[in-house]
């Protein structure tokens, strides 16, 4: 068994995904949550690249990863803008305090 194989990548990707999910749920800081989302996206990109190399043997997976990275960047830009407006209004970026709408 080769250690640089599909299994290693799958496990790394899975760990990244789950830690990202965990971070996104447990953090109070919106930026922290967003870091979790970035981890999730990274894990998917890694998975795509790995599958592209080991499983499909075509470059389409890599291309998918590139697009994921680009979208992630765009999402980060929007997140920053919204974050600033939240900060202006609430003076805080605690996700738990954003609960004026409920029920």
């Amino acid at each position: 068994m080769n250690i640089i194989g599909i299994e290693s990548y799958l496990i790394i990707g899975l760990v990244l995904f789950l830690i990202g999910l965990f971070t996104a749920i447990s953090r109070k800081n919106i930026i922290g949550i967003f870091m979790g989302i970035e981890l999730i996206l990274n894990s998917s990109a890694l998975n795509f690249a790995a599958f592209s190399r080991f499983s499909a043997r075509s470059l389409e997976g890599q291309l998918f990863s590139i697009f994921i990275i680009v979208i992630a960047a765009a999402e980060a830009a929007i997140a920053l803008a919204l974050l600033l407006s939240i900060y202006r209004r609430f003076g805080d970026i605690d996700a738990d305090k954003l609960d004026s709408m409920k029920g």
Binding site: A24, I25, S26, I33, A95, D96, L98, D99, K102, G103
Partner: peptide
């Protein structure tokens, strides 16, 4: 418990 929290929603999803 507090309510309306986005991460609680994600929790449900998870």
């Amino acid at each position: 418990l507090q309510t309306g929290k986005i991460q609680a929603y994600v929790m449900l999803l998870l």
